[in-house]
């Protein structure tokens, strides 16, 4: 199955790639990683928990997105990911 990519690399946005994985893995690249890396990770983790996803890799290329932007992008990515999963 292919990965799903949602969002953009514009300032204040983020680009989220979600792919099937043998465990749960979250990778974050961010210019504000020092200050907000942990927070971004917990935002992602919470959404993944809500959707009960345990075998995916979420790769977030952040460009200073606010929490709700990350949430919205991730939820869209998950929904498309599930759709693709059902099709295949």
């Amino acid at each position: 199955m292919k990965s799903i990519v949602v969002g953009s690399l514009e300032s204040s946005d983020c680009l989220i790639t979600i792919s099937p994985h043998h465990t749960l893995e979250i990778v974050i690249e961010s210019p504000v990683y020092q200050s907000f890396g942990k927070q971004i990770e917990s935002v992602i983790q919470n959404i993944l928990n809500a959707f009960s996803l345990t075998h995916v890799k979420v790769y977030c290329q952040d460009k200073g997105a606010l929490d709700y932007t990350i949430e919205a992008r991730l939820i869209t990515a998950i929904e498309r990911f599930k759709e693709a999963e059902n099709e295949s």
């Binding site: 990965s3 799903i4 990519v5 953009s8 690399l9 514009e10 300032s11 680009l15 790639t17 460009k63």
Partner: peptide, 12 residues
């Protein structure tokens, strides 16, 4: 940013 976003989506 625009170019890279588009390219990354096409690669995926």
């Amino acid at each position: 940013s625009l170019l890279m976003t588009e390219i990354i989506k096409r690669l995926a």
